Simulated scan of single mutants.
Amino acid sequence: MKKRAELIWIVLVVFTIFTYFLGQFDFVNTLMVGILLMTTFIKGELITDYFMSLKNVKLKYRMIPTIWLAAVMSSIAVAYYLPIQ
């Protein structure tokens, strides 16, 4: 169990460093925003499943943070991809 938590923590750190460097070196375009939103969703799911210990509970309790996260990510995507007039 400890090894799995360490591996997930390393994945979270790698995703965070990846997003930092994309922003730092100004590599942001429409494709990268989609990738950033997807990595953010994956990070949220990893945190929900392993660090909030919701992996082994009923589906209805796991879906609450997943739906919330999907709503936030969708709102950001819509706001980013809509043309500004």
Rank of each mutant, 00 (worst) to 15 (best):
K55P: 01
I76F: 09
L82H: 11
W68K: 05
L46Q: 02
I47T: 09
I10F: 14
L12P: 02
K3D: 11
A5G: 01
M52H: 08
G34W: 11
Y50K: 08
L82N: 10
Y50H: 14
I84N: 13
G44T: 10
I64Y: 06
N29C: 06
M73H: 05
S75L: 09
I84P: 01
K60Q: 03
L82S: 14
I10A: 15
V28D: 09
V57C: 05
M73T: 13
F41N: 05
D49S: 10
K58E: 09
R62N: 03
I35G: 06
F27K: 14
W9A: 11
L82T: 07
K2H: 07
W9K: 12
N29E: 13
I47P: 00
M32P: 01
I8P: 01
R62E: 05
R62M: 01
V72Y: 12
Q85F: 14
T66K: 13
L46F: 15
N56K: 06
L7W: 12
F41G: 14
M32N: 13
V11Y: 09
I84D: 14
V57Q: 06
L7Q: 12
K2W: 04
Q85C: 03
A79Q: 09
T30C: 02
K3M: 04
F27C: 07
S75R: 03
E45V: 08
T66H: 13
M63F: 06
I42N: 01
V72N: 01
M73P: 00
W68Q: 03
E45R: 10
V72D: 06
L54M: 15
G34K: 14
G34Y: 12
I64L: 10
K43W: 02
I42R: 00
M32V: 15
L22A: 08
L59I: 07
M73E: 08
L82F: 08
P83A: 08
F18L: 06
V57E: 07
V13L: 14
G23T: 04
Y80E: 05
M63D: 08
T19P: 00
T19S: 12
I47K: 02
L7V: 05
K60E: 05
G34F: 10
L54P: 05
W68H: 07
I8L: 11
F15G: 02
V33F: 03
K55C: 00
L12Y: 05
L37E: 03
A77E: 07
F21H: 11
L59C: 00
T39L: 12
G44Q: 08
I47L: 13
A5L: 15
L69R: 10
L22I: 04
V78A: 13
F18G: 05
Y80G: 01
F27Y: 15
L12T: 11
M38P: 00
P65K: 08
Y80K: 02
W9I: 05
F25W: 15
M63V: 07
F25A: 08
Y61I: 02
